[in-house]
C-alpha cells in the first residue's frame, strides 16, 4: 500500500518492481481482479483516448456555441509546415485539440483525469510513442505510471476544477503525461518524480475560467499547452534537472494554492477570461443559462 510518491518509490525499490508493476498489483488487490482484466480494460481506455485524439483532425466537430470547432484541423495543416516548435509538437497539439473538440461536441472520450483535460495524456503519449517507436507493452506501462500519478494527485490534492482550478485538471493531466513520457523513454523512478514536480510547478495556480461556462475556451488551448508542458517537463527531467521540491510537497502546495483561489476562478465561469467583455457577450448571446 502507498499513499505518497515517497511510499510508491520505496515500495518499488524494496520489492525490486517497476513503478508500473506496483500500480498494477495495487489495482488487482483493490478491485479483487486479475492481471488480464486490468490490462484489457487499460487497452480499451487507451483505444478510446486515441480515437478521440484523432477524430477531429480532418473533421471539425459541431458543438453548442461552436467556439473551438475546427481547431484540430487547422493545427494539423499547420503542423505540416513545421512551425516554430517543430512538426512533432504541432501534431501533439492537434491531437490534444481534437480530443477537446470531441469532448465539447458530446462525443465519446475517456476522462484523464477529467473530461475537460482529456486531450493531454493521449496527445503527449502518442507524440512520445511515435518518436520512440514504442509498442503496446511500453504504452501500457506508461499508462499505469500515469494512473499512479493521477491517483496520488486525486487523493492528496484534487483533480476537480471546481476545487483546484485548471492546475487540478489540465495541470494534473500534464503531470500524469510527463511521468508517462519519462517511463516510455526508460527514465529512472527519480526522473518520474522530477517530471511530476516540474510539470505541476509550471502551472501552479492556473485558474479555471471557462467562457460562457462551456468546456471549450480556454480549455482546448490549455489542453494543447499542457501537452507541450508535459513533453518539456519530461525532457527537463530526462536531462537530469533537479526540481528540488519533492513531488509530495508540490502536491501539498497545489492543494493549498487551489483552496486559496477565489470561487470566481474555480470553474464558475465568473472570472478570468470568462469575465472579459467578449466572454460576457458570448454568454449572453448563447443564452445557455435558460432551461
Amino acid at each position: 500500500m502507498y499513499h505518497s510518491f515517497k511510499e510508491w518509490f520505496a515500495a518499488a525499490e524494496r520489492r525490486g518492481l517497476s513503478l508500473a508493476q506496483v500500480v498494477l498489483e495495487n489495482e488487482m488487490a483493490l478491485e479483487e481482479t486479475d492481471v488480464e482484466t486490468v490490462l484489457a480494460t487499460l487497452a480499451d481506455r487507451w483505444q478510446v483516448m486515441r480515437a478521440a485524439a484523432e477524430k477531429a483532425l480532418d473533421a471539425p466537430q459541431p458543438m453548442t456555441g461552436g467556439l473551438i470547432s475546427g481547431q484540430a484541423q487547422k493545427q494539423t495543416h499547420y503542423a505540416e509546415t513545421g512551425g516554430f516548435t517543430g512538426a512533432a509538437l504541432n501534431k501533439a497539439m492537434a491531437w490534444a485539440l481534437s480530443a477537446s473538440e470531441v469532448n465539447a461536441s458530446m462525443g465519446r472520450i475517456c476522462a484523464a483525469p477529467t473530461a475537460g483535460a482529456c486531450g493531454v495524456l493521449p496527445a503527449a503519449l502518442m507524440a512520445a510513442a511515435e518518436l520512440l517507436w514504442a509498442g503496446a507493452r511500453q504504452i501500457q506501462d506508461a499508462l499505469l505510471v500515469a494512473s499512479g500519478v493521477g491517483a496520488l494527485i486525486s487523493r492528496n490534492a484534487t483533480v476537480a476544477g471546481a476545487e483546484g482550478g485548471c492546475q487540478a485538471e489540465c495541470g494534473a493531466a500534464a503531470a500524469m503525461a510527463a511521468a508517462a513520457v519519462v517511463t516510455l523513454a526508460g527514465g529512472s523512478n527519480a526522473m518520474v518524480g522530477q517530471a511530476v514536480s516540474i510539470a505541476l510547478m509550471n502551472c501552479m495556480g492556473l485558474v479555471c475560467d471557462p467562457v460562457a461556462g462551456l468546456v471549450q475556451l480556454p480549455c482546448s488551448f490549455r489542453n494543447a499547452s499542457q501537452t507541450v508542458s508535459a513533453l518539456l517537463s519530461a525532457d527537463l527531467a530526462l536531462a537530469g534537472q533537479d526540481a528540488v521540491i519533492p513531488p509530495d510537497e508540490v502536491l501539498e502546495a497545489m492543494a493549498r494554492t487551489g483552496h486559496s483561489l477565489p470561487a470566481a476562478l474555480r470553474e464558475t465561469g465568473m472570472g478570468g477570461v470568462a469575465a472579459t467583455p467578449t466572454g460576457k457577450r458570448l454568454k449572453k448571446e448563447l443564452k445557455l443559462d435558460e432551461l
Binding site: M1, Y2, H3, W8, V23, N26, E27, L30, E31, V38, T41, L42, D44, R45, V48, M49, V102, N103, A104, S105, M106, G107, R108, I109, C110, A111, A112, P113, T114, A115, G116, C118, L121, L143, L144, A146, S147, G148, G150, A151, L152, S154, R155, V159, M176, L214, V215, Q216
Partner: peptide, 21 residues
C-alpha cells in the same frame, strides 16, 4: 492506494462534463 486507476483513466463517457453529462 485506495483509488482505482480506472477512476483516474475514466470514465469512458460522452462529453463535455463527467458531472453534468
Amino acid at each position: 492506494m485506495d483509488i482505482s486507476i480506472f477512476e483516474v483513466l475514466g470514465p469512458v463517457m460522452i462529453g463535455p462534463s463527467s458531472s453534468h453529462t
